[in-house]
């Protein structure tokens, strides 16, 4: 047998995915599609927030939603009821989506309808989705009051990669030891550029502000 050959690689495991994500972003730019990647822990209100968001934007933008879950289609059904194109992506046990899986989802979505704003509801998880660039134009995270104001300290990467953080369920803040100012400070520590918007998806409080942010981003990307 020949001697063992050693090939120096010195490459991040995420390099290939990062490349594919950049490629996808370029294509989306040419096609005039804005892709938002929405991430959070399970149960923080991604689907409820999305329902509110599309109610405010569906008359001015063609919206398509990709729901990523390990199993079931309850989220896609909920979005379809809200009146937007929705598809369900099953990750087959994986805890995140990568650029290739996102591309496959966008292809399916494109067959159903021409969209201007595509929203990816990532798998409920604060660790893995932050590591894999999906090709999204902007990343958003939801942190809900019952989860605690120290989440940005415990899951630094998630808050580093986010352009905007929605603090959801602020209506129940009086019942929890949640300090909004402290939470803002912790987010600033991780990412000084992240916009923080407190909302209550259930009552609709603050959602206008978030929809305005998104509207601005979409129009900047498509211009």
């Amino acid at each position: 047998m020949d001697r063992v050959k050693i090939i120096e690689v010195k490459q991040s495991v995420f390099a290939n995915n990062d490349q594919r994500a950049d490629q996808l972003r370029q294509e989306l730019k040419q096609q005039g599609i804005f892709l938002l990647n929405l991430m959070s822990a399970p149960g923080s209100g991604k689907t409820t927030t999305l329902k509110r968001t599309v109610e405010l934007l569906r008359d001015e933008l063609k919206i398509g939603v990709m729901e990523a879950d390990i199993d079931s289609d309850v989220d896609a059904k909920a979005m379809a009821e809200a009146g937007v194109k929705a598809i369900q992506l099953h990750t087959g046990g994986m805890c995140h989506l990568d650029a290739d899986m996102t591309r496959q989802g966008l292809d399916v979505l494109a067959k159903e309808a021409k969209v201007e704003l595509a929203i990816l509801e990532n798998v409920g998880n604060l660790v893995c989705p932050a590591e894999f660039d999906t090709g999204a134009v902007k990343n958003a995270a939801i942190l809900s009051v019952p989860e605690g104001d120290d989440k940005p300290l415990k899951y630094p990467l998630m808050f580093q990669v986010c352009d905007v953080v929605l603090i959801n369920k602020i209506d129940v803040a009086p019942y929890f030891d949640f300090d909004l100012e402290k939470c803002r400070e912790y987010i600033r520590m991780r990412n000084p550029n992240a916009r923080v918007i407190p909302i209550c998806a259930k009552t609709g409080e603050g959602v206008e502000l978030w929809a305005a942010w998104l509207r601005e981003q979409v129009s900047a990307w498509r211009s």
Partner: peptide, 20 residues
Amino acid sequence: SGSTWLLTGNEVNIKEIEAY
């Protein structure tokens, strides 16, 4: 101070591959 940043430690790099 809290104005600190990670120099190294979050790498997941393929350093090399050994092959026949």
